[in-house]
Amino acid sequence: MSPYILFVMLSSLGLGTTLTFTSSHWLLAWMGLEINTLAIIPLMTNKHHPRAVEAATKYFLTQAAAAAILLFASIYNAWYSGQWFIQDMSSPVSTLMTLAIAIKLGIAPMHFWLPEVMQGISISTGLILVTWQKLAPLALLMQISHNIKPELLIILGLMSTIIGGWGGLNQTQIRKIMAYSSIAHLGWIISILHFMPALAMINLFIYLIMTITMFMTFNLLNSPTINTLAMNWSKSPILAATSALALLSLGGLPPLTGFMPKWLIIQELTNQELAPTATLLALSALLSLFFYLRLSYSLSLTIMPNTHPQTLNWNMKTTTPLPLSLMMMMTLTMLPITPTIISLF
């Protein structure tokens, strides 16, 4: 892709999300989402092969339908209440709105497109898909969260964490595993959304850090499946060792960063007299932990005693880029500064 076109696409990707962030009007928010979708499709089909085109088509159909439903719900709302402010949604329409946003985000019963789309695109575009593309719908959801029934959000959240964990168990493709991990993390985010949006923000922030770290690692290691991970300790031993820890952080093991949002969310849910839900959420995190553990087994905890049958990439970069080292540190060691992070949000 020519750099000018790439620049236009990336800047309109940013423009769409920013438009949604800044708007208080449903129509403008919808336009932002549309611009966003329009801009990412060319990025997805950048490498023109059947899988990329298929992924782009699937992404387009779901996002366009979800955006249409979202606009329908807001027109319905306007028809009844006579105004378009995002913060003032009446409750029955907000359910439809939540479901539309859930399709956009890939939250559990509406999640089927996400692993398939992830599988078809490159790792760097996948990074955009599971980080930047989540922001605009989540911003909308956060603004209407006080009008959504908490039961709906908790059911969606529980389904996401369970299905996100369950779906990833059987996968061998890294991108699909990361898609299921994204589903599970979004489940944590939206199950706390009604009670404490600031906590959902913290969770989103930590999720972004950990996901960016993992995607940068996989991008650097250039490995699309679990099997090819086993070779990486010889390419970059320190990266292999730390990214196993980063995977466990993604699974939420203390004392790594990933434990912090889980701890805070469980605490808030317990304060809301939802201790059984909190237990269920916590135990469903074990499902995702299983596949993170499997990834880290093959990434760094098993080393073949003999020479491995696979070949090394001849153009493998051996130096770890600075941003990755920075993100890795944040992924591993932010639990002790939890009070600082809480005070930031």
């Binding site: 329009l38 499709i41 089909t45 023109h48 092969h49 059947p50 085109v53 298929e54 782009a56 088509t57 387009f60 366009a64």
Partner: peptide
């Protein structure tokens, strides 16, 4: 328009 272009792309690849 984007949908139609994807239609063209899919019919070319699939």
């Amino acid at each position: 328009g984007l949908g139609l272009s994807l239609l063209v792309a899919t019919s070319r690849t699939h």
